[in-house]
Design a protein around this nucleic acid. Sequence first.
DNA 1: GGACTATAGCAATAAAATTTCAATAGACCA
DNA 2: TGGTCTATTGAAATTTTATTGCTATAGTCC
Lengths: 157, 157
Amino acid sequence: MTVTGQLDAIDWRILKTLQDNGRITNVELAEKVGLSPPPCLRRVRALEEAGYIAGYRAMLNAEKLGFEIMVFAMVGLKSQAETELSSFIERVKAWPLVRECYAVSGEADFMLKCVGANLHAMQDFIIKDLTAAANVDSVKTTLILRREKYEPGIPIP
Amino acid sequence: MTVTGQLDAIDWRILKTLQDNGRITNVELAEKVGLSPPPCLRRVRALEEAGYIAGYRAMLNAEKLGFEIMVFAMVGLKSQAETELSSFIERVKAWPLVRECYAVSGEADFMLKCVGANLHAMQDFIIKDLTAAANVDSVKTTLILRREKYEPGIPIP
DNA sequence: GGACTATAGCAATAAAATTTCAATAGACCA
DNA sequence: TGGTCTATTGAAATTTTATTGCTATAGTCC
């Protein structure tokens, strides 16, 4: 990354490579993108510090680890006032089953992706926590039957 | 991980830590989970080889990188015959804007998470590619206004 | 054309990963 | 209960990688 903050072709190759393999060694990465290791590492650090790279995560096999249920939950609130929104979001952040939450346009106010060990745990959460939460008007869930593609992130050419 | 394939408390700590920080050094990881580096690394390798860890990814800042639009698309197909399903899934895998695809229960057949540079690119994709694709009956999109929580993966206690 | 700046890469050093191997703890059986 | 076997640990040594310091170079701007 240049000092001006503009990304060049090498930066994009670095980002694409790291999005695909977050644990590649700097030596390999450097080779892939056509640099020697030191400038390559400097670019990675610069990309991290500038916030282009937000972090690194291991992708775990949910099924193998005993998390068999995933659902999308579309949530409508009774009030969309600032305070009410914030307090709902805070609650969402505290629920471990909710892995992702998006404010959306359309019929619902929020779209939640939830992961749980089994149907019982998920129903428990939806009925006792989500539906029962203050200000929640409607909850419409969509059960995920199978994951067909999973390439989270951005489509770098 | 033991030879029996059962995960013990240390394995779970390893998984949880790596899900949170996929680029932690083995030295740090070992310290966190209460092992010396060699057995810690052996466990990580075993977890990788057994498929509990599917990979590592850098999380990129989509907005900063110029990807400003995310939508959920619920897709209904005309035919759910085996062959038709497969060919739709193959098409989905080839579309770079589609980052995630799930077969779901309910009104739609698939839920797609799509990421694009701007509204125009997204509309182009939805109209010219997705809606126009063979066997696609209905497409209902939900625009993501804001991401409120993003902790992809599983809720390890 | 000369000075300046940004960035590359070599070389050296520090740190981490990885291998090897001996020791230990627990399970199982006589 | 004692002995054997197995799984796993951790210390030490080695290899590989990350990181730093510095010089060289290419491109830019007067």
